[in-house]
Nucleic acid binder design. Structure first.
Length: 523
RNA sequence: GGCGGCGUAGCUCAGUUGGUUAGAGCAUGCGGCUCAUAUCCGCAGUGUCGUAGGUUCGACUCCUACCGCCGCCA
């Protein structure tokens, strides 16, 4: 049996609508998940996402719309789920922190953690920022006036009793795990940052709120005057549903230790410091890795609601066609670094890569197959002897084992960009091969038709392999290409080069996959 | 203030343990082909590799200082 793997996006805080940045994270995780499914089989991969629906900010957002919190999050959660669905993010679990299954699970973890003596009840006086929903030390605040560094607003002095998680006891252990890559943080730059964050002793982590002040959370099983919410609550969304469905023991043994979290760099600290501590405090094993990505900016500046440049990802997918946003963010952004999104750039990529390269090469090959042989493949594909041509840049090897090499880039290096570059190198080879062999010239001489048949068999097979390698990135497009090639069974789709299309196979006439667009023709 | 990252062709970036004329894509110019979505192929470039020193037979690649941008921590 292949090793199982659990993959998650962050659990999205549902006080706003999904934007291109949240879509980016879901898309990266989705491509990763699809590559893993090809390796291990669908039944050995679990891909989870969901919405974080508790806390003061949600309650306030709901009130602002005149809705009960639950009614509000019902609406928001669907927006996220449908946005991801619209981008063909293929999830196995969609978790909501207000689901009964989840709430019950969090309560169970609280009981476990308390039984282990890792929760303490104590009075606390501190400076609290409502916007951040957290306490600050005076040193962290901007002076004068004790201003919250994030909201630039005064904090309140609050005195209350709360439940705290004693996490400093786990600090050394977490440091060791990160140093030894047992918690693998990549790209490596973020590993150093995480270790930095663990350099100082950790103060106890407050995990409750008195209902009197904030009741939109999960009631503590050992004190009905308190709720838990946001971080403590949301982390468990990675676990609650699958653990409830499969049984906690089974899930923890077979799935959890291989967990790959996809997160943004803004929540590195919570995931590298607090989350391991929360798990250890509950007596549970740790996840395998944190895959940290940067921001997706818009036209050079940070995408945020306040600057009014939030874009709805699905509108781009609709305007440009399926798979286009998927292609763009995976090709354009280096995983781990900030990237930039703009309609201009999207249009450029669309025309240069999708219309001119991918769409056109499929079109020209199928057109020749149709014109010269009525779409019939009459030779077995071979690896052409390229030494026959004078041009030296051609390497048919770019097309051999393409899927495996692309898969490695994604699963081992998180290098989505390089993976796509390899696929496009394959398209280059096909185009150069056409120019060098000029089948359209050979076809004028009936005696040379067998040669043409061989060239086209090679090219059609090359396109089939490209579609196969492209599938995790552009599932709809890959499907269209397979339809054009009239390939229906998985065995043929996934065959190594040379073992796919057979003589006698019939392919269809071309249909433009990506019609060229005028610049800035979006929306 | 402490730690770390980045600064390479007009634009976006690659450059593995220091070694021959520093690369790719896009954009630009010229030439070729006509099967194809006016697409494709070839050729041509331009770069004081942030600045100033240092180590070395030799540095984009190592060291030091400085400038600029950014992140994390305080």
């Amino acid at each position: 049996m292949s090793e199982r793997i659990h993959i998650t996006t962050a659990i999205f805080y549902s006080n706003g609508t999904p934007h291109v940045g949240s879509a980016y994270e879901a898309l990266a995780a989705d491509v990763f998940a699809r590559c893993q499914r090809r390796r291990r089989g669908r039944e050995n991969v679990s891909f989870l996402s969901g919405t974080d629906e508790h806390g003061d900010k949600i309650r306030r957002a709901a009130m602002a719309e005149g809705l009960a919190p639950k009614a509000y999050t019902d609406k928001m959660s669907v927006l996220f789920r449908d946005a991801f669905k619209g981008l063909n993010v293929d999830l196995d679990y969609w978790v909501r922190t207000t689901d009964a299954v989840h709430e019950k699970f969090v309560q169970r973890m609280l009981v476990e953690t308390q039984a282990k003596g890792n929760i303490e009840f104590k009075e606390y006086e501190g400076l609290y920022c409502v916007g951040c929903e957290r306490f600050y030390t005076e040193k962290e605040l901007q002076q004068p006036g004790n201003l919250c560094p994030t909201h630039n607003a005064p904090v309140e002095l609050i005195k209350e009793s709360n439940y705290f998680l004693k996490i400093d006891q786990f600090r050394e252990q977490v440091i060791e795990k990160i140093k030894r890559d047992e918690i693998l943080i990549r790209p490596e730059r973020y590993k150093n940052e995480a270790l930095n964050m663990l350099g100082e002793p950790l103060s106890d982590l407050c995990i409750s709120r008195p209902k009197a002040r904030m009741d939109w959370g999960i009631e503590l099983p050992f004190d009905d005057q308190y709720v838990t919410y946001v971080w403590y609550d949301a982390f468990w969304a990675y676990v609650s549903e699958p653990a409830s469905r499969l049984g906690l023991d089974v899930f923890m043994r077979e799935w959890w230790p291989t967990t790959e979290h996809f997160i943004g760099k803004d929540i590195l600290k919570t995931h590298a410091v607090y989350w391991p501590a929360i798990l250890l405090a509950a007596g549970l094993p740790l996840f395998r890795s944190l895959n940290v990505h940067g921001w997706l900016n818009f036209g050079g500046s940070r995408m945020s609601k306040s600057s009014g440049n939030v874009r709805d990802p699905v509108s781009y997918e609709k305007a440009f066609g399926p798979d286009v946003l998927r292609y763009f963010v995976m090709r354009e952004v280096v995983y781990g670094l900030d990237g930039d999104f703009s309609e201009e750039r999207l249009t450029e990529r669309y025309n240069a890569d999708l219309a001119n390269d991918l769409g056109n090469v499929v079109s020209r090959v199928l057109a020749m197959a149709q014109r010269y042989f009525n779409g019939k493949v009459s030779e077995s594909p071979e690896i052409p002897d390229l030494s026959l041509f004078l041009t030296k840049k051609i390497a048919w090897s770019d097309l051999l084992e393409l899927t495996e090499r692309v898969n490695d880039d994604v699963t081992k290096e998180l290098d989505f960009k390089r993976a796509l570059e390899k696929i496009w190198a394959g398209l280059d080879v096909a185009n150069k091969y056409i120019v060098e062999t000029a089948p359209f010239s050979l076809a004028k001489d009936p005696a040379k038709l067998p040669q043409v048949a061989q060239i086209l068999a090679n090219l059609l097979e090359a396109i089939r392999v490209v579609a196969d390698a492209l599938e995790p990135f552009m599932p709809v497009t890959a499907g269209k290409i397979f339809d054009l090639l009239n390939v229906v069974d998985d065995a043929t789709k996934r065959a190594p080069y040379g073992e796919g299309l057979k003589p006698g196979h019939q392919v269809n006439a071309p249909v433009p996959l990506f019609p060229r667009r005028e610049k800035l023709a979006a929306s």
